[in-house]
Amino acid sequence: MKKEHPGAPLLRMDRIPHIWCPTCGIGTTLNCLISALSASKLDLDKVSVVSGIGCTGRGAGYIKLDSFHVTHGRAIPFATGLKLANPKLKVIVFSGDGDIIAIGGNHFIHAARRNIDIVVICVNNFNYAMTGGQVGPTTPLTANATTMPFGNYEKPFNLPYLAESSGAVYVTRWTALHIRRLTGAISETLNKKGFSFIEVISPCSTIYARRNKLGDGLSLMKFYHDNSEIKHGANTRDVNIEFQKKIVVGKFVDIEKPTFLEARDEHYRRVLGEKYQPYGGIG
């Protein structure tokens, strides 16, 4: 008997098999998103997923929702336009570290500053995998990359710290091993208002791990198992990642702040009074 994949109702099964390598963490992360969406009470017709370019950027192409695969680095500003033009939508950005933090870094910090009501799931595999393993803004010091052939000497970003200091209202980090906790975190963000950020540390066994001689997928999972330390509420200053050292995971930030649209609405009601025409999108 042929059994259907439990995520099938929310997957574009006519596009499977996907392009991701065996033991890659992106599929796992997408699965967590699908589980969280399936379990949620959201009207899934009103959920949109936006991806940029890269391995993770293919995520939007596999999820069976309104989904947009846009340009490199610009998933967040596309999502901003989508969300502001129709505030009834729940908009999720699903993309990689190079996409969101390097080429799209400016959009990331400004969307967080404005508290645009979107969920950003950033799969961090420490390198540009689609193009063959170049250094990225998250590559740990000393790690090898094709454009850092003698090891990385650029200090990487600490993503939770960047997200929090830019204004995100919800900041969490898990690895692709923490399926239950990651799914739980995504579920929380689906009901959260404001700019939510989820960093997912993901094994890239074909490119990053091979180049850095870190073993196969299983040994990477074992590494996460042995070296992840759950520290809810940890100061995001202290959660930077060093090459093959302890990874602090957990929920670091969960606060309330008016979103861009709430702040705008409140402000215009106050200063324009009767003349203000509130905007709720169309349809």
Partner: peptide, 29 residues
């Protein structure tokens, strides 16, 4: 626009402005 009903956003650059309008257009606006 606040007196007509709609959105203006000053984005961080022209890269983002030029794609935010595409997002909005796909929302039907």
């Amino acid at each position: 626009i606040p007196r007509v009903g709609g959105i203006f956003i000053q984005m961080e650059d022209e890269l983002s402005s030029s794609i935010a309008i595409l997002g909005a257009s796909w929302a039907g606006v």
